[in-house]
Computed example of a mutant assay.
Amino acid sequence: MTTSDLVKQMCQEEGMSIAVLAKELGQSRQNFYKKLQRDTLTLTELKEIANVL
């Protein structure tokens, strides 16, 4: 399972869409989806995702 899969699964469990997560992180939806698609999230971004979720 990739990091992107884990982020998507966590969002689903929390009832939060990827678009809302992107907004909470201060990123555009399109940019965040691309990062998930390429699996290029930084450690800092992963920490921010953990805080939001």
Rank of each mutant, 00 (worst) to 15 (best):
M1H: 02
V20P: 03
E48Q: 14
E45G: 00
T40P: 04
I18F: 03
M16W: 07
S17L: 01
K35G: 02
Q9Y: 12
G26Y: 13
D5K: 05
A50C: 04
N31F: 09
R29F: 05
V52K: 15
M16K: 11
F32R: 05
V20C: 10
E13T: 07
L25E: 03
L36C: 09
Q37G: 07
E24V: 00
E45K: 03
Q12H: 02
Q12N: 02
N31K: 06
M10R: 15
G26W: 13
K34I: 10
L46H: 06
V52H: 10
Q27S: 09
L21Y: 05
K47R: 12
S17H: 04
A50S: 10
L21Q: 00
L6F: 03
G15K: 04
T42F: 01
K47N: 14
D5Q: 04
Q27I: 02
K35Q: 08
N31P: 00
I49A: 10
T40Q: 13
E24S: 13
L6Y: 05
M1N: 00
Q37W: 01
L43N: 00
M1L: 03
A50L: 03
M1W: 00
E48Y: 01
T3Q: 09
A22G: 06
L6A: 10
A50V: 03
T44A: 11
T3E: 06
L41Y: 10
N51Y: 13
Q12T: 02
L53A: 03
V7A: 00
E48L: 07
S4I: 00
E13C: 06
E24K: 15
I18G: 07
Y33C: 12
L46N: 06
S17E: 03
L41D: 12
L25S: 14
T3S: 02
I18M: 08
S28L: 12
R38D: 15
L53E: 04
E13Y: 08
K34Y: 11
T2W: 01
S4R: 01
K8F: 07
C11D: 05
T44I: 08
